[in-house]
Each structure stands twice: as C-alpha cells, then as structure tokens.
Design a binder for these strands. Sequence first.
DNA 1: TCAATAGTGTCTTTCAGACACTATCTC
DNA 2: GAGATAGTGTCTGAAAGACACTATTGA
Lengths: 247, 247
Amino acid sequence: MAGEEQQFLQDYAPREYPSVALTVDLVVFAVTGSTLQAAFVRRGGHPFKGSLALPGGFVGPNEDALTAAWRELEEETGLDLGAHRAHVEQLATYSSPKRDPRMRVVSVAHLALLATDGRTLPALDPGTDSAAAQWLPVYEVLAQETLAFDHREILTAALERLAGKIEYTLAAARLLPGEFALYQLRRVYQAVWNTDKLDAGNFTRKMTGALHDTGRKVARGKGAPAAVFTVRDEYLSPPMIRPAAES
Amino acid sequence: MAGEEQQFLQDYAPREYPSVALTVDLVVFAVTGSTLQAAFVRRGGHPFKGSLALPGGFVGPNEDALTAAWRELEEETGLDLGAHRAHVEQLATYSSPKRDPRMRVVSVAHLALLATDGRTLPALDPGTDSAAAQWLPVYEVLAQETLAFDHREILTAALERLAGKIEYTLAAARLLPGEFALYQLRRVYQAVWNTDKLDAGNFTRKMTGALHDTGRKVARGKGAPAAVFTVRDEYLSPPMIRPAAES
DNA sequence: TCAATAGTGTCTTTCAGACACTATCTC
DNA sequence: GAGATAGTGTCTGAAAGACACTATTGA
C-alpha cells in the first residue's frame, strides 16, 4: 500500500494529484501609542513591483508551517526572538490557483503578535536577501496602499481575527511586556479597534477581574501612578464587546 | 523574473523548496434529535487500518481548497448537494511533516454543516472508490474511538469551532432547513454543546430577536404548535454564552 | 496651584437565568 | 381530562455604559 502510493506520487503527482509549493505569509502586528502597526516589505521585482507585500517564505522539507513562520519571522525582520516576546498562530490558508501568476503557490498565513513597550517599535533589520522590512500603520495601509497578491485579503483577515480575539481573550497583552499598566492595555485595544471610545474607568473594572496586581506602581509623567499587572486568566468572561464602528 | 522562478522550481523545488501533496479533510456535521453526528470513513488499508478517518482527498491542479472540499463532500458522501443545503468553510491547515507516514501531505481541513430536518440523516452513498462513509455520534467517537492520522485533533478543532461559532452567530441554523421551529434550533445547540441545560423559555426570548417569524405554525405531535422562523440577522448580539461544562 | 491621569462610586439600563404560568395541542 | 409542549410574565442578580468624584502625580 505505502509503496504503491509512493510510486504513484512519483509517476503521476504533477499531472493527476499536483504537488504545490508551500509558503507561509506573516502578518506581524505591534503597537506604538494608540496605533496598530504591521511589518511590510516593498516588492522589488515583478509581479506587483513596487507594491507592499507581507513577509513570508517557503516551508522547508522538515518543517511544519508554524515552525516556518517562526523562522521567517526571525529571518525577514532580523528580530532577536530571544529578546522579544512574540506569539504566532495560524490564520488561514490561501490556495487560489492563480494567486501567484508565476506558479502554483499555496500559502499558510500566520498572525504574529510582537511585544513592545507601547512606545518604540523593534528595529527591523533589512537582512541581506530580502527588501527592507518596515513598520507601517495598518489602517492607513488598508485605506491607501496597493498590496501585492492576495495580501490585502490576508491582512484584513488578520486584523479581523485579532480584533475579534481580544474580545474574549487577553491576546492584547501579547503586544505588551509581561508586566504592564492598564493604560497600556487600553491603548492596545484602541489601536486594534481603531477607536477612542473606551472609558478608562469601566475598562479598569472589566480587566482587573482577569489580571493579577503585582502591587507595584509605574510613574508615567503626568497623573497618578498606575498599578502594574500581569495576566492571570487568558479568557475574559463575559467577553468585552467591541464598540460599534464610528460613523 | 517569472521565467527564472519557474526554472528554479523545475530544477530545485524537490530539494530546496520541496513541493508537497495538498489534500482536504472534511468534518461533516449533521444533527439528529439532540445528537451531533459526523461523517466518518473506516480505513481499509495501512496505515491506521481499521481506524476511523475523516473523508477527504487531493486538491486538483485548478482548484482551490474550498472547491476541492465541496467536490469531495459530494463524491465521498454521495450527497446531492442540489437537494441538501450545506455550508463549507475552512478550518485550519495541518502540515506536520510526519502526519502521514507514507509521504508529505499537507491537509487543509474544512468544516461542513449539512442541513437536515432534525430527525433523519441524509443517506451516505458508499460510492465506488472509497470505504463506506457512515454517520457516527461525535461525542461517542471522541470518547471511545481511535482516529487515523491527526484526525482526532482535526475533529476536536472542528467541534470547538462550531461550538464557539454558534455563540455569536446563527450558524446553528445551517444544520436545519431554511424554515424551522425554535425547538429544532434549541436541539441543535444542545447537540453541539452536549448539554440539556437550555431553558426553552429563555432560549425563545433570546433567539426571536435575530429571527423572522413567518406567521405559520408547525404541529408536532404533543404540545402546542410552534411558530416557524427564518434567519433574519446572522449575528447574535450580545452573544449567547455556552453553559459551563457538566461536572 | 493647576492640569493630567488612575481608579472608585453610583446610577441606569440591559439581559441572562430561574421558574411560574397560561395557552394549545395530542391521546 | 391528562400530559406534553410553546411561549410569556416576572423576579433577581450580573454587568455594561455613562459619568461624577477622589486621589495622586508632575510642572
């Protein structure tokens, strides 16, 4: 049986059961202030020369897609993942036969959340082989830019996944250091939902139920010092519903 | 550029950037009474001979994964999809290099919801090429059966996806005809969540907000006749939270 | 002192959950 | 009539949203 299948693959795979090139694409999110940013690459060659694209690359012969996503995250951004907390999860697979005009490429898109202090973005190293990766504000890119391949669809799906996920989990804390103040977490929510309608007091009450108060305080320029929290429960119950989109 | 890439693929793809065989696996759900059922195939050959497996098959050269899933749904179950309402969506992609011991197979798993009248299951045609597909109760299978490959993981993910999705959408109605009574919808929820803790009165109040009352009634053996509804809003807001698991 | 911010108090409204109750059907 | 079911009424408690208010900081 096994031998038969392998023989079959060898002889007929390209015709009957075509093999495909497998890649990963990455939507890497990070937050500065109240702005959601993502990592993009400017394409230097055809097709879609000059357009923005998502970082990504081929899946190796002995990797699964998630492992490849972590590797590409490190390679394409030049980030030291030992120093930067990060979270990577699978988003969806894009398999339209014509999504890459050159050949059949099936891509497993991944969502990556990079922890920052909420003020500065991790420096992206251009690396040697790829075009320079750069941080750009997500909502502005979606409003103004042309994206290569089906990367607009992927980016939109990633944003919607993240926006939905922080409704019922503390995934937003993945975009912050292990210890953080509530105003930082609130700014992450505002960045992802692209809104400023979050009442600070109500937000505090809602979140403290799922957080652990370290007892320490953080001084931050003006205003009273904020308490420092860590995540206690990964899930919010009941969930925190997004405010309706601005009119 | 394009020629260069194609040349590259032709020469080096199997070594450097290996191509993979792409398949779809299907988790096909349907409901009878208050029991959630799924379609399974009993494996006739090695590996995992004798174990239950999910239906699936290869993705064709000019198909995307969703199209292949629809085709396999029709082929493997022998269902007439013109007569049966169905909903298919992508679930997740499984790409562990060793998930199939014979060769590298990457599978895009799909979730399929088949509409029934809530009493009888659509007959599954064994077809000619594959082992006979059969309906089996999902929770019993998960408790007792051995599943081939990583199909237990896929089935669990599909169940969780469905259980979560009916919290904030009316996806449960995809398992029913276009017109249905509230007791039918309630049984779908009970089947998916494997619970009997749904209060009929409160369920009615909650759901009628998102449904359209056709004004007609359905007589059903004992009890008062139930009103016939159709879906009006696909989304439930606020969502309907699952009761905590039974202890 | 003043402005800014963190966090609490309070009130209202919404809604889930429990459960009684009525209406309507079959047997 | 008896039993079963559909749907409403009603009460309670939880929690979201609006917003006032206090406390604590830097300038």
